[in-house]
Design a protein around this nucleic acid. Sequence first.
DNA 1: ACTTCATATGAACGCATATTCATATGAGAG
DNA 2: CTCTCATATGAATATGCGTTCATATGAAGT
Lengths: 120, 120
Amino acid sequence: MTDRKHSACCSYIHAHTDIVNEVRSKLPSEEVLYDLADLFKVFGDTTRIRILYVLFESEMCVCDIAQLLQMGQSAISHQLHVLKQNKLVKSRREGKTVFYSLSDDHVRIIIDRGVEHVCE
Amino acid sequence: MTDRKHSACCSYIHAHTDIVNEVRSKLPSEEVLYDLADLFKVFGDTTRIRILYVLFESEMCVCDIAQLLQMGQSAISHQLHVLKQNKLVKSRREGKTVFYSLSDDHVRIIIDRGVEHVCE
DNA sequence: ACTTCATATGAACGCATATTCATATGAGAG
DNA sequence: CTCTCATATGAATATGCGTTCATATGAAGT
């Protein structure tokens, strides 16, 4: 148990080998791990969170959101693109304007859990 | 309703003014918003997510985590610091080694919600 | 077709952040 | 006190990402 590669690591393993193997086997796949991190990254930005909060109330077009949040149209459009890519919002075209709305309830649930933690 | 400041925005408001005001009033405070985004930012990194998954199984010391995840001790230590700052993990000293564990159930709940969304 | 308006998109700039390296701290053993 | 080992920390580097600016797309009206 002393023949280790990591020179910068401790010279023994505290956890039993079977526990280490069990933990390794329970780790999600690389793909799920990346998708998970990517999903949470989306929530890790105040602009996107504010957009989602706005959409909690009502579907809305790009420029209305921009005006509500006092931001440029381009910035909002870029962020809506990110949100859509991650299937958190969906869009509906009506003439020249595009209305965005939440794609499902997951969004609200995830954010509410976050609020619970933040507010202790 | 046509006297608008934002030149880059549409020349009218689709949503009724009262809805706009209602949405504005329901937006969380700047502080909560930032704390929320910061919290999700923590989950938005594969290394930190993997650390949390490891701690789902058992409390563990820094070097064990580093070895399990095949990463440097310093990197893990830095990330554990971030996790601790956000009250997602707690630590317990035993001699020279420091054991980390989850600080509460919120962590698992939030991650599980994320998995739900990712796995459709 | 041409103009206008709402939205989308690509490039660029600036800022945040994850990892590494080197080193410091802190605890136990001798 | 000194040495060793586990962990923490600061600086530096590299990579990612959000906003802005300029411009493109696409739809409706004339």
